[in-house]
Design a protein around this nucleic acid. Structure first.
Lengths: 111, 111
DNA sequence: TGAACATATGATAATATATTCATATGAACG
DNA sequence: CGTTCATATGAATATATTATCATATGTTCA
């Protein structure tokens, strides 16, 4: 996991300078991944540490197949990473951007 | 528009403590709004200042009706605000979270 | 090896979403 | 007041997405 860091207004302005149309489409694809309650619940569960699929299913009280399908989407977007440990596959957050993005969202809806 | 501010790791951790299931669903709804290329292009155009509907249509090279439908979704989510000025309706970003959220997304896809 | 457990995946059906077309609303101005 | 310009909206269609069911793959261990 990357080191945590702060995001100043200048840094933000610099990041969003000159974004191409293709990059905007990629961004939309990324946010689409956050835009589903099952997936965001999975991410939130993983905020508190790594979990295997069965544990994630129990946390969400959801069908294993539905969860696995969504895990695949999260993996493809590189929001989570996985490793096998015996019979189980352990999932965890890929980096801290996930937390930051969700925190920004939360702050928005709180207002 | 709100004053700009920094987001420290501690602040982020504090924001995402104890998020309820309902809040997670609201978050998913919010991110769903960012998860469409038309809408994110509209937001990006508005980064550079207020614009009326015709100008937004020209920037995106898109049909007025399609743009208006998406503007409505952005308005409902309070990501943009609008005011009438004569015949035209002027749209602008509602607050700085939009920029921050998109900057975080961009940083993620850059890696 | 084969039984039991854990996870992934393909196909399907139900639902949601975006764009288009047609039209309505609203403002300005002769 | 009627025409023109600007924007909004409803209905319909096309497409995308999600959850479920059935089943396949992969791992452990007797």
């Amino acid at each position: 996991m990357r080191a945590k860091q702060s995001y100043s207004a200048n840094r933000i302005d610099h990041l969003i300078e000159n974004v191409t149309e293709n990059e905007l489409c990629d961004l939309a694809e990324l946010f689409k991944v956050f835009g589903d309650s099952t997936r965001i619940k999975i991410l939130y569960v993983l905020f508190h540490g790594e979990k295997n699929v069965t544990e994630i299913c129990e946390s969400l009280d959801m069908n294993q197949s539905a969860v696995s399908h969504q895990l695949k989407i999260l993996r493809t977007s590189k929001l989570i990473s996985s490793r096998r440990e015996g019979k189980a596959v352990i999932y965890g957050l890929a980096d801290d951007h996930v937390k930051t993005i969700i925190a920004m969202g939360k702050e928005h809806i709180e207002e």
